[in-house]
Amino acid sequence: MAEAAKQTKAAKETAPWRPRILFWTVLLPVAGLFLPTLTVLALAMLPTLGAYVAERSRENHLVVTVGLMNFCGSLPAVVKLWSGGQSFAAIGPVLHDVFGWLVAYSAAGIGWLIYLLMPPIVASYCRVASQTHVQLLKHDQRRLVEVWGEAVAQPPETGAPPGAG
């Protein structure tokens, strides 16, 4: 089994280029096929690009928060594009539709809003949760003392010897 694992690892090291070739071979034709859609999406999701630029953490929570909302907000424009046949000719009416921009950018704004409002809400929650948790832990400690005596609260090196009660 260890031998098989070694062989697999060696095979991976000797051919790292295979997935990349496969990726570009599939992606490029697909991208070419959906280029009008991608163009509309690229313009509608500019707030997400902004969020990506403004993101400070490595986990990209801001991008995820804004991006998911922004993507959903962009879907009416994409639907309209697909209603026009998903062609470069149909891009113009879509880009001129203010409602589409409004929905896409508003949704992104809601995403920003969620991101900005969440810390005070979570802080309040954490404070309450901490207090509750402390109460529960103290209750557990009291129960342990009730069952095992005060000695249970003492560290092992200073604990009373067995038989001392």
């Binding site: 929570h61 801001l62 804004v66 909302m69 907000g73 991101y115 802080a123």
Partner: peptide, 16 residues
């Protein structure tokens, strides 16, 4: 809060 924001966003997106 960041994690919560992501999750809330994901839920709202799903609803949308």
């Amino acid at each position: 809060s960041r994690q919560a924001a992501s999750m809330v966003s994901a839920v709202l997106s799903g609803l949308m």
